[in-house]
Design a protein around this nucleic acid. Structure first.
Lengths: 111, 111
DNA sequence: ACACCACTTGCAAACATCTTCAAGTCGTGG
DNA sequence: CCACGACTTGAAGATGTTTGCAAGTGGTGT
C-alpha cells in the first residue's frame, strides 16, 4: 500500500496538532522523561497522557523503555525540534504583525 | 484573552493536518494560484477547496485578492515552506529506517 | 504473598472536523 | 440586463478525536 507524500505530511502534522502532544515533545526534546515526570509538568489525567503518548508512539515520534518501575520516553526523531522552532518563529512573526486582533500569546519556556 | 504558546503551536499544526491543505500550501509556495488553477491540480470538489482555503485564511496562512473574475491566493507566511521541507526530511528518514513495516511513500513533486 | 506505585487499555459520551449539496454573491462579456 | 463562470457560504450527515472513568498489568519493597 502506497501513500502519497503530501498525505504522510498531513498525518505528521496532525500528530503534532494537540497541545498535550506539543508539550510532551517540548519536554522530551530537552531530555528524556519518565511518565510521572511528564505528569508533573503537564496538567492532564494520567490516562489521557498515556493516550497521547500512545499516539506519538504509533507514529514513531517517540520511543519508550522500561527502567525499573518507570517508563522512560525519548524523541526518536530529533528534527521534531526544528519543527517546533520554526512554528515558534512563525507565531512570533504573527503576533508582531497582527497582535491587535485575535489572541495574544504568553511567552512561555523554550523551544 | 491570552493563549499559551504551546496551544498556538498545536493550532498551527492542526491547520496543516489535512492533505488538501498541504497540497494547497505546496502549490502556493511555488507561486500564487487562482482557485481554478488549484482546482486543476487538487482532486476535490470546488466547495471543499473553498472550505479548506477558508481554514487557511482564518489562520492567516494565506491571503487572497480578487483579480478580475478570479480570486488569487498567496502564502502570507513564507516560513511555511520550511515546515514542509522539515516534514519531508523527517518522512524520508522514517522510510529509510523502517520502510519494511507500515506504509510506503510515493515520491511526488517537491517540496 | 501482599500492597503499592507507575502506567496502560477499553470504552462511551462529548466534541470537532470533513464532505457534499444546494443556494448565494460578484464580476464580465454579450 | 441577463447569463455565465468563478467562488463562497450554510447546513447536515458521516467520520474521527478527545477525555475521563473504571479496570487491568507489571515491577518493587516489605
Amino acid at each position: 500500500m502506497s501513500v502519497p507524500l503530501y498525505q504522510a505530511k498531513a498525518e505528521l502534522f496532525k500528530t503534532l496538532g494537540h497541545p498535550a502532544r506539543i508539550r510532551i515533545l517540548e519536554l522530551l526534546s530537552e531530555r528524556d522523561h519518565a511518565v510521572h515526570e511528564l505528569l508533573e509538568r503537564i496538567d492532564i489525567e494520567p490516562s489521557n497522557l498515556s493516550q497521547q503518548l500512545a499516539v506519538l508512539r504509533r507514529t514513531s515520534m517517540v520511543v519508550s523503555h522500561r527502567l525499573g518501575s518507570e517508563v522512560v520516553y525519548s524523541v526518536s526523531v530529533p528534527e521534531v525540534r526544528d519543527l517546533l522552532l520554526v512554528a515558534r518563529k512563525i507565531l512570533s512573526g504573527m503576533i508582531a504583525v497582527k497582535g491587535e486582533l485575535g489572541a495574544e500569546l504568553t511567552t512561555d519556556a523554550l523551544p
